[in-house]
């Protein structure tokens, strides 16, 4: 019952921008929809017990790849969005078999170092990525001859992608694959003894979660129309951790709630970044101290269900 009420509330919020009609509200709503696939990707890794700090880098790889495929190779935007999202997936497939042998804090440091290297490459390979001065002139997204020129257009695009990725992640969670991933997280030795190839499943989850991050990156690139290495660094790691923590990792709905609550903050507090940091910090500590399972735990009683 409560879950349905939350779905209804989210739908209502999703429709809100059209009632208000302000460009600013549409912008915030679009940013929320863009962050949802990214945070859901991060969440899939949290579900298998790995805190990945590589996801902002995957986000950036998706963004630059989608933009460059359209700009340099003249690929149609929808195709470059999908192919662009496959780029971080392929990178995850390449590094995953090495990274995912490592667990816990070592994985955290490893993925952090990986993210820093990718961010440095964005900064230094100016010929391709434009460096710190940025990559300009990303064309508008278009699909079936429709050019997306207004913010509300991108909001619809983001909404569709967010819903699709949400449904994908929910399907994974409820399927046998979800049961396997959860089993591996709960008791790896037991799960392996029954024949499950732990590494292969972890790599698969890593690849899927990188794809979600890539989709988010691609839409971001087309929406903003300009890329610099700036958003793909440590600040986004903090944002994502706040979203997962505030929403709660216990259910796929958790990070979505986290994104809805968290993304508007920096936009609303644009002129007072120090307060934003303070609120983030208080949220992290408060939830860890009083509600480790996040907002979702107030809605769903058991760990599954939503």
């Amino acid at each position: 019952m409560k879950v349905r009420a939350v779905y209804a509330l989210i739908l209502l919020l999703a429709a809100l921008p059209w009632f208000i009609g302000s460009r600013y509200i549409f912008h915030i709503a679009t940013m929320i929809t863009i962050m949802i696939p990214l945070v859901l990707g991060m969440h899939l890794m949290v579900r298998i017990g790995q805190l990945s700090l590589a996801h902002p880098a995957f986000w950036g790889l998706g963004a630059y790849a989608s933009a460059l495929l359209t700009m340099r190779l003249g690929m149609p935007p929808l195709l470059s969005l999908l192919v662009g999202a496959a780029v971080p997936s392929l990178v995850a497939l390449a590094v995953g078999p090495i990274f995912l042998r490592i667990k816990g804090v070592f994985f955290v440091l490893l993925t952090f170092a990986f993210g820093e290297i990718v961010d440095l490459i964005f900064q230094e390979w100016t010929g391709l990525f434009g460096g710190n001065s940025g990559l300009y002139g990303i064309p508008k997204f278009s699909i079936l001859g429709l050019r997306l020129t207004q913010i509300p257009h991108y909001y619809v695009l983001g909404l569709i992608a967010a819903i699709l990725v949400y449904l994908l992640m929910r399907a994974i969670e409820r399927s046998d694959v979800g049961a396997i991933l959860e089993s591996l997280n709960e008791d790896e030795m037991l799960s392996r003894s029954m024949g499950a190839n732990a590494l292969a499943w972890r790599v698969a989850a890593f690849v899927v979660s990188a794809f979600a991050a890539g989709i988010s990156g691609g839409i971001y690139a087309f929406y903003i129309g300009f890329l610099s290495p700036d958003p793909f660094g440590f600040q986004t790691i903090v944002d994502l951790i706040v979203m997962v923590t505030v929403g709660g990792a216990g259910s796929v709905l958790g990070p979505v709630l986290g994104a809805i609550v968290t993304v508007p903050l920096p936009e609303l507090l644009r002129d007072a970044r120090e307060y934003q940091l303070m609120i983030y910090g208080v949220c992290l500590i408060g939830f860890m101290k009083f509600a480790k399972q996040g907002l979702i735990s107030f809605i769903v009683d058991k760990r599954r269900g939503a």
Binding site: D176, V177, I180, M194, G195, A196, N197, A200, W201, A204
Partner: peptide, 11 residues
Amino acid sequence: RAAVLARRHNP
């Protein structure tokens, strides 16, 4: 879960 783990060995 045991049946699933035994059946689906890898992705």
